[in-house]
Write a protein that binds this DNA or RNA. Structure first.
Length: 725
RNA sequence: GCCGGAGUGGCGAAAUUGGUAUACGCACCAGACUCAAAAUCUGGCGGGAGCAAUCCCAUGUCGGUUCGAGUCCGACCUCCGGCACCA
């Protein structure tokens, strides 16, 4: 069909090495598991191609050439007992007429099973048949049978492998299944004393009978070559290098690298999407649309064909066109592009969205990109994030951008997930909404059993929320009940962004209470909060709501200290994209405000300033987390409704000297065990701390009558006294 | 099977990266207010012993390094995720 033969591809494989190697460049800014998945997906494998000459069953050389296999273990080639090819391999197609019915039937069977994998069997059973063809091992000149095997994939490597059962698990299984000879040619390496280097002892060759011996286990590690002609005695590493070189020299092979990554098939048979701007002319062949006639526009309407062919093919006004080259009759390509094509470069387009002659102006793209921080779900780890990286490299090669990688840092936020219940006895999962399921739980809340209303026992899982699974939470409902701010605050507070969040409404009340506490406190101090007239005047300069250090000591001191510590904590956390801990820090500040017991009626001038500073800072820091409440409270503070932006508000400034404590608590340990705490001036010297610690009454109880061997002082933190006796 | 990641209270989670484990919140218990309830406020809240000061044990398990380990090293157990005949 058209789909098989006329797909449009982008040559991602051409960039496979760059896509893999450049990961090193961005690794530090990307989540580990995404980098790993990309590496696996690209799947670079270094090895060699080796050509096996083909003979007919009669032994005659019919000139049908050779079968090329890919192997990473050319050092094991003397152990090959067969060449196994995929059912779709050209050599099979070529010789179909010469095969027996039995062989033909097996080939059909394997092909059919591949097209229609009935079940996802964990362990697929090895299957295959000897075709009768022969292949000559170019190293040993041995004649080997050519088999068709269901475990060889046409899509990877060359679609043909040399089967070395003693040193490959799959070949081993295959050989056992069909009683093929198993010959060991790699021996585990040994130390000089004869002890095996490789920990596994499941494979060892009894030396005197190595030739006749059939192992009952395979050994897949590197080792020393045996039974390999002149190569015997070499290490795997050396043999791989030298045998590959020899193959290249003699012309029956070469070093080769293969990838799991495939070229990117971008053809889609849809009535929507970006058209592929190509026409097919009877005279000129495949001709791209003229630059000035771009973009090609899709018709408004297209019928569904039901045949798998693009609906656009049934729209003559679209399909029939003139050749951009000779102006003769021509047909348009009716496939449209994969949506990943668009998502590969939308972020560049954002920088220059109105440009009608270019995707993006190079200078503008260079100014804004690469993207400093990209955020998305880790479901895009391989698809979108590889395509976008590929696209960027192509743009770079076209001279549009000057860098290799589109996203310097990547954050994969976790998803909100919920419990799902389903019945899969029919083979398909039929989901039941949680409210229709009777659930029995143990003391820890773990599900013991789940039964549907009509009495069916159900399986359960925790999955990404979706309508079809019935485990979704309606955000509007949450907003209705708790408010948008509390809902948002709770989600941010409940867990680190990258964690999955199992939805549980229980905690959301805490967020509501916190916002209410802040709100109540601010209103209690309403009349005291307004900014001093000097600062309130509108100016182009941002308003600093935080005053530099003035007072030292006093009841306001503690509050100011907490305020400035909180500012630092929130600021640091936001810079590293942590959103749960800053919420905790702000809750602490709010608690300190209540604990301070400073009342508007009785407060001193310094206390009023301290409270104003604390509340204002809290309101400003809350802006990213609870924007509505924050704006409302801010209007109370500045006395107008223009909002933070118009008022030039800025994130509160933190002063190191104010954040610093007057007195710090120092842990005192004896032999590493906490025995006491002392309070000391932060400036106290190590010697002073040591003296205080040794003099402490709780400490003398533990050190009395014992010899002090040494004392470790960690500045600002602890003193550890090591005693003996 | 192979490859990653993670195991801390009843629960979600903190811990300045080797320095006072359990911050903050939820749930729970008690008290205040109330005719009562809700809301709010106050106190408690890892386990064990003790009237108490205090002591012992505890970050999946076992061992190691260190004055000191949730954090580093080794082995194992469990859970989650990815790949799944990739030659």
């Amino acid at each position: 069909t058209k789909k098989d033969l006329e797909q449009w591809f982008l040559k991602t494989t051409k960039y496979a090495d760059q896509l893999l190697d450049d990961l090193d460049e961005i690794e530090s800014g990307w989540p580990k598991n995404v980098v790993k998945r990309q590496r696996d997906w690209i799947g670079r494998s270094k090895g060699a191609f080796v050509d096996f000459d083909v003979r007919l069953a009669s032994g005659a050389d019919d000139g049908s050439g050779h079968i090329r296999v890919f192997t990473t273990r050319i050092d094991t080639i003397y152990g090959a007992n067969a060449v196994v090819v995929a059912a779709e391999h050209p050599i099979i197609v070529e010789h179909l007429s010469s095969f027996s019915n039995e062989v033909l039937q097996k080939i059909q069977e394997i092909r059919a099973h591949k097209l229609n994998p009935t079940d996802h069997q964990v362990e697929a059973v090895k299957d295959g048949i000897d075709t009768g063809l022969k292949a000559i091992n170019p190293f040993s000149r041995e004649e080997l049978p050519v088999w068709v095997g269901n475990y060889v994939m046409m899509e990877y490597g060359t679609g043909a492998v040399m089967s070395v059962p003693a040193h490959d698990e799959r070949d081993f299984e295959f050989a056992k299944q069909f009683g093929l000879p198993i010959k060991a040619v790699i021996e585990p390496p040994r130390h000089a004393d004869g002890e095996q280097k490789v920990r596994s002892t499941r494979f060892s060759v009894p030396e005197e009978q190595a030739e006749a011996w059939t192992p009952n286990e395979f050994f897949a590690d590197y080792g020393l070559l045996v039974n390999s002609g002149n190569w015997s005695g070499k290490t795997s590493e050396a043999a791989i290098e030298e045998m590959t070189a020899l193959a290249a020299e003699r012309g029956f092979g070469e070093a080769a690298t293969t990838y799991k990554l495939r070229d990117w098939g971008i053809s889609r048979q849809r009535f929507w999407g970006s058209p592929i701007p190509i026409t097919y002319c009877e005279k000129c062949g495949t001709v791209p649309e003229k630059y000035e006639d771009l973009p090609v526009k899709l018709p408004e309407m297209a019928p569904f064909t039901g045949t798998g062919e693009s609906p656009l093919a049934k729209v003559p006004e679209f399909v029939d066109t003139n050749c951009p080259n000779c102006n003769g009759p021509a047909k348009r390509e009716t496939d449209t592009m994969d949506t990943f094509v668009d998502s590969s470069w939308y972020y560049y387009r954002y920088t220059d969205p109105a440009n009608d002659s270019l995707p993006v102006e190079s200078e503008i793209a260079d100014f804004w990109t690469p993207v400093d921080q990209y955020i998305g779900g880790d479901d895009h780890a391989v698809m979108h994030l590889i395509y976008a990286r590929f696209w960027t490299k192509v743009m770079r090669d076209l001279g549009i951008v000057k860098f290799d990688e589109p996203f310097k840092r990547l954050l994969t936020q976790g998803m909100v997930v919920g419990e799902t219940f389903f019945d899969d006895s029919s083979g398909k999962r039929i989901y039941y909404p949680p409210e229709q399921v009777k659930v029995e739980r143990d003391a820890k809340g773990k599900i013991i059993s789940a039964i549907s209303k009509d009495g069916k026992p159900l399986k359960h899982a925790i999955e990404r929320m979706s309508k079809s699974k019935g485990n979704g939470v309606d955000p509007d409902e949450m907003v209705e009940i708790y408010g948008a701010d509390a809902t948002r605050l709770f989600i941010l507070f409940a867990a680190p962004v990258e964690n999955e969040l199992v939805w549980n409404e229980a905690g959301i009340e805490g967020a509501v209470r916190f916002l209410q506490r802040v709100w109540r406190f601010a209103y209690k101090w309403k009349d005291e909060l307004s900014v001093p007239p000097a600062a309130a005047g509108r100016s182009a300069r941002p308003i600093d709501h935080v005053q530099p250090p003035t007072t030292v000591g006093g009841s306001d001191r503690k509050l100011r200290q907490k305020t400035h510590q909180t500012i630092k904590r929130v600021q640091d956390a936001l810079e590293t994209l942590q959103f749960n801990t800053p919420v905790a820090a702000m809750m602490e500040l709010s608690n300190t405000l209540y604990d301070s017991k400073i009342e508007p009626e009785t407060a001193t001038a310094e206390e009023r300033d301290a409270v104003r500073e604390a509340v204002t800072s809290l309101v400003l820091m809350l802006a990213p987390f609870a924007p509505h409440s924050s704006e409302e409270l801010y209007s109370v503070i500045v006395g107008n409704d223009d909002g933070m932006l118009a008022n030039n508000a800025r994130f509160p400034k933190y002063y190191e000297e104010l954040a610093r404590a007057d007195e710090i608590e120092i842990a005192v340990q004896v032999n590493g065990k906490l025995r006491s705490r002392i309070f000391a001036d932060p400036q106290a010297s190590d010697a002073e701390l040591e003296a205080m610690a040794i003099a402490d009454s709780k400490i003398t109880e533990h050190t009395g009558g014992k010899e002090i061997i040494k004392v470790i002082v960690v500045p600002q933190r602890l003193v550890n006294i090591v005693v003996r006796g």
